[in-house]
Every structure is written in C-alpha cells, then in structure tokens.
Design a binder for these strands. Structure first.
Length: 646
RNA sequence: GCCAAUGUAGCUCAGGGGUAGAGCACUUCCUUGGUAAGGAAGAGGUCAUGGGUUCAAAUCCCAUCAUUGGCUCCA
C-alpha cells in the first residue's frame, strides 16, 4: 500500500500502481470523468500512469491551467492525425498547447497551400477521430529507435528534434493510427474532445529561425463541452468589437493615411484632445514628484547616437541618416530621447546638491519597424513616449526607483488596470556580448531593481536575457477587460549612458563622480496607452478623459435655443458639451449618443425649459431623473474629482 | 522582411466575363415627436494601382501597393 496526500492535506491509502484516474474514481465517478491529468510531487503526468510510491497528488480537470494544457496538447496530436489523413505526406514540426488552444507547425506535401476553406474538413476529421475514443498510449523509446521511426517516415523535422534529445528521455505518445514524439502529459483518451475550432493559419519559421524553411502554423482550440466553445467564440467576437482600430474609427480618434505613410498615425481632433488630457494628467503628477519639463528636437547629429551606442546597435535597422545639402552632414531621426537629455544634463556643472534631476518630455521618436509588424496604434513607426530621465547618485538610485514605481501604480489605479503583472528583465549571463557596460555596473543596477520591487511588494517574474542592451528593466504588463496582456510602463536603470556621455557631478568630497540614470515611461507611449485604454474600456472612457462629456438632446427644434443656452453654461463651467439639434425624434438622438459613448445625455423639452433644468440619462443606464443645471454641474465635478482621487 | 488571406460608395458588406448593388452615414423635403433607429426623394464608385488574356475584365492571370492574421524583430 502507498500513501497519497491530497492538496487539502487529506491522506488516503491505495494499492501501489494505482493511477490518477483510479484515485479520482474512488472519490467520485463524476470527478473521474473530468480528470485529464495529474501532478505527482509537483510533476505533471498522465492520469493513466501508475503511482508506485508515497506521493502528493493533485488531480487536474479542464478547469485548471494544467488540465487545459494536457487537453490542448492531445488536441494538437489529434489534429496532426487528422491532417495526416487529409494530406498524406505532410511533415510535422512542433505542436504545443498555448494559452488559448494549440497549434501545429507543418510542412505541407508538394507545396499544397492550406486555406481557411480547409478548416471545416479538418474540424470534422478531428471530431471523427475523437469520437473513436482512442486511448492515448505512452511509450518510452531508445533514441536509436526514435530516430529510426522518423527516418523511415521521412520526417526530417522530428529527426532533428530527436537528435538534440538525450537518450533515455524520449517518449512517444500514440492514439489510433498516429504516433508523435512528445514529453506529455496527455488526456486518457480522445473522446474528451467534444468541440473543435480551427482558428487561423500563419507562416512560422522552423525553430523560429528566419533563415530556415517557413512552415505552416495551424491554430486551433478544443473544449470538453460544446457550450464552452460557443462561449469562447462569443468572447472572441467581443474582443473584435473592442478592437481599438475599430473604435478609434467609430469615435474619430485617429486615422492612418497611405499618403502620409504606414505606421504614422494622424490624431484627429477628438483623439488629440483626449491625448492632451492624458498628457496634462501626467504632467501634473510629475510636477508633484519634482520633474522638470524639457523639449528636444526631432533629429540629432549622427554623432549623438554614435556616442550613445544606439547607432552601432540599431543603425542598420533604423531610418537612414538625413544629409544636409551643402555640408553633407548626417542627422538621424530621433529614435530615443535619452541622448538629448544627457546633453541637457551636461549644459552646466552639477553638484551632488542638485541631484536628483528629473527631465521629462513627451518626446516623439521614430523607429523603423518592419512593415509586417505594424498594427494599429500599438505598433507604429512614429510615436510619443511619456519619457523622463532621472540623474541621481548611486545612493539615491533605489529611492528614486521606488518613487517611479509609485507613479506607475497611481497611473494604473486611476485607469482601472487592476490585474497588472510586473517583469524584471535581467541580462543573459551566458551571452554578455549582447550588452554594453561593465559587469560591476550591471550587477549594481540589477540589484537595485530587485530590491526596489521587493520593497514595493510587487509580485515579479524574473526573465533572463530580456534586458535592454544598456541596462536591466522593470516592465509593467496590464490585462485588459478580456484578460489579454499588454506591456505598458517601463522603468530602466542605466549606468552606461552616463559613462558614454561622460556625465559628472561634484560630490561632497569635491571629487567628480558619475551619476546613474533611470529611464522611465509610465504609459510607455501615448499611442499604445490610448490603444490599450480603448480596448480596456471599450471606448467608454472615464468622465474626466472622454472627448465629449455631455450632449444636450432637445425634444424638438422648438427647444434648440434653450439647449444652446444650457450648452453655453456647461461649456463655460468646463464641461465638454455638444448639442444634437438635428430634426430627429428623441429616441433617435438617444440611440446615436449611446453609440458615441457620450457619458451624459441631457434631454430638454417644455418642462425643463420652464424649470431651467435638464433631464439626465447616463450612458448605458436609463433615465436618472431631472435636476437643475447647477446641480448637474456639481454632479459632473464630483464624479471627475472621485475619478482622479489618489 | 517572410507566409497566407483580403482590397467594391464615407462606414459595414453582397455580387461577379456583357446597364455597379444593399444597409447605415450624407443632402433636400415632409414631420415637431418625451428616453436606443419617423417618412419620402436625391446625391455618391476608374470595383486598390499597373500590366496581360478576351470581341468584351470590377470579375480570369501576373506584378505592385495597402490592410488583416501569424513568424522574425522591438532602443
């Protein structure tokens, strides 16, 4: 007999060799139907594998991440079998489970091109295989046998994968007529898969290497219940409705013109006003934190970026230098604000008594992004960073870093990004050539970030090799209303630019010292932040920020004059107010205002005119009653104050 | 940059070798209506661009450009 400990601490005894499924069965028949994988002493394994020693066991259903992973991994295998049946001669790369579903990279036979017209027959074939209730069988194989299997099959991708594996660790999983190299774990049999959707196809380089062959990547998702698939598809529809490109067009916030150039957004009046409000919001916060505004031009001498190291690192992948006509001097479009700010620091001698100095600028920068990478406002070629650079003494670094964290947290709170995560990006210790700067400085910088984050009690994930080339960083990722993750704010420590620009301050000892620099952008860029905010709010911006706060809807044209009077009063009181004086019925005006996501609709007719009042309707709600104009102004002001409260 | 799909009116889209279509938006007229679409008429398009095939191309073929979904990249 062996002892099995459950997550709640309960211990039960079972025969040695019992499986996860048997354990589930001993608890309830229903559970046994739902368990798709188990963890034994922290290792995720098949629910059908025997357990032979005392163990801590956790049962996973599709509800859990681990269960989904096994479920989708098996689904990838089933899809592979379906593809092999439909397209004989197809070769397989890798086919993992991902956050939402799975994919398989395949090499289509004879250059067949797969299109979305093939999706349905693939789905049908997958369901046909699933219904067969084929057991998923695990088999450990020696490396020689594994190589032999795929060499005979003619699948060079799998052969390459196996060549890199160590003998003795190789396992195959089979279901029905299909065998795949796989670490597992997998669900017990194929019948768990009840609903499937092939989502999209895309090209993907073999092993992520653009020099190697491009395979076809097929994305799909499966569920143990049809209902779950339907819900997922509804969620996808919802995400599409929130797409910032769509809402940006509907609300006339920004526009892309082919003539202006790809990736170069044009901010329309309502978008520009919104952005201006965002900038003012941050300027106010920054002023409180002791930042000073600076302004730098959009181009700079090539030498500036040679000094900073950006030219060496990115020169080839940037917009190419601009030459002056007479002298043939070279200028670069500004890809970063920091070199300019370093020169501002150098404009006069600095004393330790002056530090820290904090230069802030909404600086527009230009970066050459590959054409295929451009995407709405989230990936553009010209964008404005809410940039600032803090120059401080090494002793001040941690405190300054913590103050920046405070600003970022305040920003996130104000905009309702509750579920953010943070990532500390450090240098890859095995690949130091990728970075500039001394080991000692890197060590100090990394240490400061780790400590500051810990002292601010941030839950961080540490990633090696993700640092910027000049220093480590702390990034903030927010999840929007649909749970998608976006990187926004960033804080980076930099010992290298002060070195390269030979920045100095005079210490209390009357000696020259080198300051440390912090780069930081709480929004990241105005473009990306607005995009994420649109998707997060579905275009229903907070009242203080939204382009139009109120719209007056006269019942008929007879009340247009009164409407103008009210609008005038409100606009004078800094409430951004429109009038809908079209020759339309009130129902129509309400509908259009709702679709424009204007927070307050003020209906005025005979009764309101007599009482100098408005009848108030909140967007997304119904009539919330009438009130005097003064009372409405108070209501708005209170709501705005509430939104901006610290 | 690479792979694939797409490109028809301001927007969303249907159509398809032989008069260019719908809904919304727009203009004018009627209507003056109390909480999510009042009615009528009108205007609006070199069917992305350039070539080719054809008696005839928006439709078929090729190239280019752009958009979308991925891949690679991301200071």
């Amino acid at each position: 007999m062996i002892k099995i400990t459950f997550p709640d601490g309960a211990i039960r005894e079972y025969q040695s060799g019992i499986t996860g499924l048997d354990i589930a069965q001993s608890i309830s028949g229903r559970l046994a139907q739902e368990v798709v994988a188990i963890s034994v002493n922290g290792d995720l394994i098949d629910a059908t594998r025997p357990i032979i020693t005392d163990s801590i066991v956790k049962l996973h259903t599709f509800e859990e991440k681990e269960g989904k992973h096994a479920f989708w991994h098996t689904s990838a295998h089933v899809m592979a079998e379906a593809l092999e049946a439909l397209f004989p001669g197809i070769k397989f790369g890798i086919g993992p489970a991902i956050e939402n579903g799975f994919y398989y990279d395949v090499d289509m036979p004879n250059d067949t091109v797969l299109t979305d017209k093939d999706f349905q027959k693939i789905e049908e074939k997958i369901l046909e295989i699933s219904r067969g209730k084929h057991k998923v069988i695990r088999k450990e194989v020696p490396k020689s046998e594994a190589l032999d299997f795929y060499t005979k099959k003619g699948d060079e991708y799998k052969v390459e994968l196996i060549t890199d594996l160590e003998d003795g660790t190789i396992t195959f999983y089979s279901q029905n007529n299909f065998t795949d190299l796989c670490r597992g774990p997998h669900i017990p049999d194929t019948s768990y898969i009840k609903a499937v959707k092939i989502l999209s196809i895309a090209g993907a380089y073999w092993r992520g290497d653009e020099k190697r062959k491009q395979l076809t990547r097929i994305y799909g998702i499966t569920f143990p219940k049809k209902k779950l698939l339907d819900e997922y598809l509804i969620m996808l529809e919802e995400a599409k409705k929130r797409d910032h490109r769509k809402i940006g067009k509907e609300l006339e916030l920004f526009y892309f013109s082919e003539k202006v150039g790809l990736g170069l957004p044009l901010w329309l009046p309502r978008g520009a006003m919104l952005r201006e409000r965002l900038e003012n919001f941050l300027k106010k916060v920054q002023k409180e934190y002791g930042y000073e505004p600076v302004i730098s031009p959009h181009i700079g001498q090539k030498l500036l970026y040679v000094t900073s190291g950006h030219y060496e690192k990115y020169g080839k992948d940037s917009f190419q230098p601009i030459h002056t006509p007479a002298e043939d001097e070279e200028f670069l479009l500004k890809p970063m604000n920091c070199p300019h700010h370093c020169e501002i620091y150098k404009c006069k001698p600095r004393s330790y008594k002056d530090l820290p100095v904090r230069f802030a600028e909404f600086g527009t920068v230009y970066r050459y992004e590959q054409s295929g990478e451009l995407h709405g406002l989230t990936r553009v070629r010209g964008f404005t960073q809410d940039d600032a650079h803090i120059f401080c003494t090494p002793d001040q670094l941690k405190d300054e870093f913590k103050k920046v964290i405070d600003i970022v947290l305040y920003v996130f709170k104000t905009f309702g990004f509750e579920g953010f995560t943070t990532q500390i990006s450090l240098r890859d210790p095995n690949n130091k050539e990728k970075y500039i700067g001394t080991d000692e400085n890197w060590k100090k910088a990394e240490q400061a970030i780790i400590e500051a984050a810990a002292e601010k009690e941030l839950k961080t994930k540490v990633e090696l090799g993700e640092a910027a080339f000049y220093g480590p960083k702390l990034d903030f990722m927010v999840k929007d209303a649909l749970g998608r993750s976006w990187q926004l704010g960033t804080i980076q420590v930099d010992y290298n630019l002060p070195e390269r620009f030979e920045l100095e301050y005079t210490g209390a000892d009357n000696q020259k010292h080198r300051p440390v620099m912090i780069h930081r952008a709480p929004f990241g860029s105005m473009e990306r932040f607005v995009a994420v905010l649109i998707e997060h709010t579905a275009g229903k911006f907070p009242l203080w920020l939204t382009p139009d706060q109120a719209i007056i809807l006269p019942i008929s044209e007879k009340f247009n004059n009164f409407a103008k009077k009210v609008a005038n009063v409100l606009n004078i009181s800094d409430i951004r107010t429109l009038i809908d004086d079209r020759n339309e019925k009130i129902g129509r005006k309400i509908r259009d205002a709702e679709l424009k996501r204007i927070p307050y609709m003020l209906i005025v007719g005979e009764k309101e005119e007599a009482e100098n009042a408005v009848s108030v309707r909140r967007q997304g709600q119904n009539d919330i009653g009438g009130m005097p104009v003064d009372a409405f102004i108070k209501l708005i002001n209170e709501e705005v104050n509430q939104e901006l409260k610290k």
